[in-house]
């Protein structure tokens, strides 16, 4: 099913999601890795050992959400760019989504950008809170986006708004 429809449908990563209660307690990592491939950097990346030890290098990662605090080490170590950090507790209306982003030009903090879903469709606008681009992240910058809470599970990419549409100051979310 997944291979044919290609874009992971929501129900297919339901298993990977923490309980609704845990989601309201603070940031957590979501690993969208649904295929047994030989790859294991995520389990060694976690300083809190929240990613269960693999029996086999092809194992799918499984997170212990009692241990995960959403620090984002795994996000930057995943070669498949398949991990996002989600924090639904960011503010009353907004959630925080941290995504890997390997395109130039990079957005800068304060930018308002278009937030895209797994199919590359615009779901809303987002404000860039921070751009991490440290040496240990090895040229995979991490963008912190604040989005309306209802979109935190959908936003996976961003697109800069060109020219006069670009609005650096005002938070301006237009649901489509």
């Amino acid at each position: 099913m997944l291979k044919k429809t290609k874009v992971p449908a929501f129900y297919e990563h339901k298993n990977g999601l923490p309980h609704a209660e845990r989601m309201l307690q603070g940031p957590f990592a979501l690993i969208e890795c649904y295929q047994r491939i030989p790859c294991d950097p995520c389990q060694y990346a976690c300083p809190r050992e929240a990613i269960k030890t693999f029996q086999d290098i092809n194992d799918l990662p499984e997170i212990d959400y009692d241990r995960c605090n959403g620090c984002g080490r795994c996000l930057s170590k995943c070669p498949g760019l398949a991990i996002v950090i989600i924090d639904s507790t960011f503010s009353l209306q907004e959630g925080l989504v941290k995504i890997p982003f390997e395109f130039l030009p990079l957005p800068v903090a304060g930018d308002v950008v278009e937030a895209l879903n797994r199919e590359g469709r615009v779901v809303c606008r987002a404000r860039v809170l921070k751009v991490e681009n440290a040496q240990w992240q090895d040229r995979t910058p991490v963008i912190w986006l604040t989005v309306p809470k209802e979109h935190v599970l959908d936003v996976r990419n961003l697109r800069l708004i060109q020219g006069d549409e670009r609005d650096g100051g005002r938070y301006n979310c237009l649901p489509l």
């Binding site: 044919k4 290609k6 874009v7 992971p8 498949g80 879903n117 797994r118 590359g120 469709r121």
Partner: peptide, 21 residues
Amino acid sequence: RIGGYLVHAAKVQRSGIPIYT
């Protein structure tokens, strides 16, 4: 079906590139 790794496919799909199998 897609022959390559699905995580590679997801990277191009979230940029809006259609994959016609």
